[in-house]
Design a protein around this nucleic acid. Sequence first.
DNA 1: AAAACAGCTCGAACCGGTTTGAAAGATCGG
DNA 2: CCGATCTTTCAAACCGGTTCGAGCTGTTTT
Lengths: 339, 339
Amino acid sequence: MNLRELAQHLGLSKTTVSRALNGFSEVNEETRLRVQEAARRFNYTPNISAKRLATGESGAFGVVLPGASSEMADPVFGEFLAGLADGAGRCGRDLYVNATFDGEEAGYRRLARAKAVDVMILANLKVEDLRIRLLSHLGLQAVTCGRTAGSLVYPHLDIDHEDGVRRAVDLLTGLGHRAIALVSGPADLSASEQRMVGWHTALDRRGLTAEAGLFMAGPATEDHGYRATRTLLALPTAPTAFLCASMFLASGCCRAIGDCGLKIGRDVSVIAHDDGLATVRPEAFEPALTTTFSSIRSAGGRVAELAAALVGGADPADLSEVWPVDLIFRDSAQAPPRG
Amino acid sequence: MNLRELAQHLGLSKTTVSRALNGFSEVNEETRLRVQEAARRFNYTPNISAKRLATGESGAFGVVLPGASSEMADPVFGEFLAGLADGAGRCGRDLYVNATFDGEEAGYRRLARAKAVDVMILANLKVEDLRIRLLSHLGLQAVTCGRTAGSLVYPHLDIDHEDGVRRAVDLLTGLGHRAIALVSGPADLSASEQRMVGWHTALDRRGLTAEAGLFMAGPATEDHGYRATRTLLALPTAPTAFLCASMFLASGCCRAIGDCGLKIGRDVSVIAHDDGLATVRPEAFEPALTTTFSSIRSAGGRVAELAAALVGGADPADLSEVWPVDLIFRDSAQAPPRG
DNA sequence: AAAACAGCTCGAACCGGTTTGAAAGATCGG
DNA sequence: CCGATCTTTCAAACCGGTTCGAGCTGTTTT
């Protein structure tokens, strides 16, 4: 059942039927109801490709997965994607996932030229992220999850990583900790940099120094969390508290602490950032982990909404948000043992 | 730059240019080269929507994420999706991800009516999976990752879960184990059922009984792995070996074993199934985990290829594969302690 | 009563490709 | 040299929507 057939059935023109279904005001209300009723009865859904061709809008958002890298192996990104797809659905859009085998840049170029998507979604922003410039150069709009320090203005949603770490450090220093390690994700990520800034400023404010040796960047895996923690605990001035940038890092961190014969809470404190993945819940740790929390899935959903607003003609300057982070106190953060 | 403009530049008709670029034989070879050269120079890419409208093919594969559930929280699914997107890219297709807020079935119906995708991809097949019937009823082709026991014929790719578990059990019984637990994923999953069958048959062949109490189904999380293992170790006849259906279950399993003061390898053996996620590598365990291995990412890529073949008109009956599973021996499987 | 106007509806053009059927030009056998 | 055949190209129709501009009512304004 297509538009022409539906119009014939109703004894109307394609024009009127199309307008009736798309909510134009010139259509008689009675006619509109008749049309809507018929559309429902005949199970009519406009052909997406035709609609896109006619409107010039693709009705889809794009995400490029760098094929070679293992970004998707990252469950946090997966969860973000789920939120994104969910939000896109709510806005009546679809999500185009493109994993290019010929390099990320080629993927963007292809999508742009083929007018396959209305907006590109970028996540895991780097400190210096070339993709933003590339896209604006290609004439593709973009919405990002995360933000860079530069002066470029683009719609984005970000978590206040800096503040989250700051508050976590405040909590720990308040409990009496003086040597606080930061077990971080990849150093080139903007989020990692923001966390480092928060760590520095919070320690500075207390008159403590952020020892460079207590900052350990690396992949956000259990493995790196374990190794980093082992390394840190072997230092002559081992830290009494650990901030982990993800739950996976925290898993490894906790395992390392256990392997060293220490007890979390009593001997060493741990605070992790929790993105809200169902598979790694802080309550499942022993003891339950104190966390900074922000749902990455919700963030994905909101990014989709921002993208929809952008397509709808909203001013890009109005489409940026920074979400606060919750600090949730559980048992893994306690006062340090008396030295 | 669109087809008409390109044709004008070349002094040719749209027809000829289109055919030259799409490899039709009636075009003069010299002309074809001229056209291809010009297309490259002007950076011409056909408009996807127009192409789709004209051909009736959408050029995309569809994946529906059940919005309410947390399938995406599952990193294994994320990795599968990455492989899928990668494979789709290699075949010149795109991936349409649809997370419906109004229920999975509604999502399929919408995609079918709007002719948004050529083939649907299904993963995480249930023992009784209604989606397959629904799709064939909607006239949508499908390729699945996983297979059900029923008599329906559909293109699929599956891992030989049954054989993997059988060989793992054989290894353990060969080492002298007699009580072998199966820490499984969700019971309604077809893969879980296949694993259970493998467990039963391998034990039967050795004249051992598969105790119902040693089968623990649940979500494929660290948490469930931990709880299940604690429960099992508290049994009067505690198992001496554990088979874990995923690396996450294995993480929890190992933690539980450690918490009970036991040592993996010496006191208790563990074999896990490894889907090849970069974040949870068996070598990172202490001791390194013996695993059955099969890359879920490669599987995703292959599923995309099968889907492309299906669109290309291949006989659906020829498009099914079952991949063998590697058994990789490491240190976590040893002979049981002498009772 | 003529002019202006608002409310609905419609035919036709358009989006940018693919594909059909016809035709022009080249090649060839007789 | 002519008709048959093959090669190559083209104009026009088509896919299924959206949208512009015009036309046809009937009501209000002057």
